[in-house]
Amino acid sequence: MYQHMSNDTYVFSDGFDRLFLEELYSGDTRTAEEIFGTSLAQVELSMQLAEIECRSEDPARLRRVIHHVKPLFGYMGLLSVQDSVQQFEDLCGGERDMAIVRAAFEELRAIVQEALLRARSEQTKLHRYNNRRA
């Protein structure tokens, strides 16, 4: 079910940083829908690249790919996921043992996959809300 306030203001779902999203988009739900869409597409692409880089022996290359994923979760109000990505990026910056990096990447991948599901659902919710107001 969609959560709307009585004046039909869009309310982001539980688990998203509502206050931050409201400050980011200032009620512009069309922009929010668009940014969710482009962010989702870019995260999916970057994660595919990250998987390829994960097979290499160079954590720095993986770090560069992951670096671009990080703020995208911020644009979707998933700041805790952004923090998880930051931690992984830091690990890639200091860790030379790729076995440790790969293990951490598996954990990150699970977090990202779950976050992508939630973000896609929110984008759908935004889309329906915007269509209803059109």
Partner: peptide, 11 residues
């Protein structure tokens, strides 16, 4: 290089 970042900034 991040399209969403550029889009928001442009707005």
């Amino acid at each position: 290089d991040l399209q969403p970042a550029a889009d928001i900034l442009r707005r």
